[in-house]
């Protein structure tokens, strides 16, 4: 089952979440057979997650961009005012877009799919609003994907060259595109040609 033996570089990439989902699974299973390496990894994980929490509690200057050294009080006030204007105008624009197109741009339904879910478990949702479907992708992967929505083997909707952000592929499905029924969502990694299919049930 776990015939692969990771080298030092691969284990470091594993600690840093830089492996694909397949490679991560292979290392996970390799660790099941190597308790000493597992114990070592537990310490690595503790450092990684402990430092993350420490940094979250005490953000450094470079993450506090509103407090950049050298920026004057007026510059900071101006920046905040600009943000407020963008926020208000953005809200108004969304309101008008909503009126003109009949499609709400605000608060779409978000559906999260799991890469480990088999096709037999359909994910059900109402498609009365715009829907955002999110699918976990390989950690920090630069791979490109094609996402296809099928019904009875016929393509209904296809998006090419999707890339992951924050380890997620995000697909926007406009309101009204899908009628009630069962669909398959097929995700294909264009680099590895591996594909995964999810079942969707629209009410």
């Amino acid at each position: 089952m776990s015939k692969m033996t990771p080298d030092e570089k691969m284990l470091q990439d594993y600690i840093q979440n830089k492996l694909s989902a397949e490679q991560t699974e292979a290392v996970d299973l390799w660790l099941a057979d190597h308790p000493q390496a597992l114990q070592d990894m537990q310490l690595d994980l503790m450092f990684a997650q402990g430092l993350e929490e420490i940094q979250a509690d005490n953000p450094t200057d470079d993450s506090q961009w509103l407090h950049l050294p050298g920026s004057s009080f007026l510059q900071r006030v101006g920046l905040i005012a600009a943000m407020a204007v963008v926020f208000v105008l953005g809200g108004l624009t969304v309101h008008f877009l909503d009126k003109d197109t009949g499609q709400s741009m605000s608060q779409p339904d978000i559906i999260m799919l799991s890469t480990n879910r088999g096709i037999e478990d359909d994910v059900s949702f109402n498609h009365n609003e715009n829907t955002v479907i999110q699918i976990p992708a390989g950690y920090l992967s630069d791979d490109r994907y094609t996402v296809e929505l099928l019904q009875k083997s016929q393509t209904i909707y296809q998006i090419n060259d999707v890339t992951s952000q924050d380890d997620l592929l995000t697909v926007f499905v406009p309101k009204g595109l899908l009628a009630a029924g069962r669909y398959q969502l097929k995700v294909m990694n264009l680099s590895t040609q591996e594909s995964e299919t999810f079942g969707l049930a629209v009410h």
Partner: peptide, 20 residues
């Protein structure tokens, strides 16, 4: 020694997977 032990793991018989 620890790094070289990682490399030599491939020669060991997998135990936990078989036991499981």
């Amino acid at each position: 020694m620890r790094v070289s032990a990682l490399g030599s793991d491939k020669n060991k018989t997998p135990l936990n997977v078989e036991r499981a």
